[in-house]
């Protein structure tokens, strides 16, 4: 008990206030982050579920917001943790649970094969995607692909946008 460090936390009410006061940019970031974490999981839940769950855990006091951390990275961390829980839980779910309806495929569940095929027209992007999935990061990926940092970041954005558009198209909500 004596070795426990004391971390000061904001109250759930303060967290709610901070969440409500976020800028449009930060709100957009958080919805996109929720999509990224939810739609790379083999689970029947989608990003709204993930975001709801994060807010619920914060308001319930199960996840305290450390005073030393900004609300944006804190929320991203909470969603990451929940998405991780979902993945471990998915081992206990019935294998047919997410494939009984068209909805299972409508919310694009990415797998490695689908991803590599998505970048068949761009070898560099494909190399970066494969590198990312193998756990490589920043400088290592620049080195592997022979790109400058700026060119790598531009390519990484292109990769993210293509994946986001795939999700949109499969959800049928994109406005053309």
């Amino acid at each position: 008990m004596g070795t426990e460090s004391v971390i000061a936390h904001h109250s759930p009410a303060e967290a709610l206030e901070a969440i409500r006061s976020l800028s449009d940019r930060d709100k957009t970031v958080l919805i996109k982050v929720a999509k990224a974490y939810a739609r790379t999981r083999k689970t029947r839940y989608d990003y709204q579920d993930l975001f709801h769950e994060a807010i619920a855990r914060i308001l319930e006091g199960k996840r305290g917001w450390p005073q030393s951390l900004g609300i944006l990275p804190f929320l991203c961390g909470v969603m990451r943790g929940i998405a991780w829980d979902w993945r471990t839980q998915s081992y206990e779910e019935a294998p047919e649970a997410s494939s009984t309806s068209e909805e299972g495929s409508a919310i694009a569940r990415l797998d490695a094969q689908k991803l590599v095929a998505l970048f068949a027209d761009d070898i560099i992007a494909q190399q970066i995607v494969v590198g990312i999935m193998e756990g490589a990061r920043g400088e290592e990926l620049c080195e592997q692909s022979g790109l400058t940092k700026t060119a790598y970041e531009s390519k990484r954005r292109k990769i993210r946008r293509r994946i986001e558009k795939l999700w949109l198209e499969q959800q049928g909500t994109r406005r053309d």
């Binding site: 982050v33 990451r80 990312i132 193998e134 993210r160």
Partner: peptide, 19 residues
């Protein structure tokens, strides 16, 4: 459970969103 390719991908997507 160890991080799988999709975990790495999710983290990279989030890294890009935040940047």
């Amino acid at each position: 459970v160890q991080p799988d390719p999709m975990d790495h991908l999710a983290d990279a997507l989030v890294e890009d969103i935040l940047a």
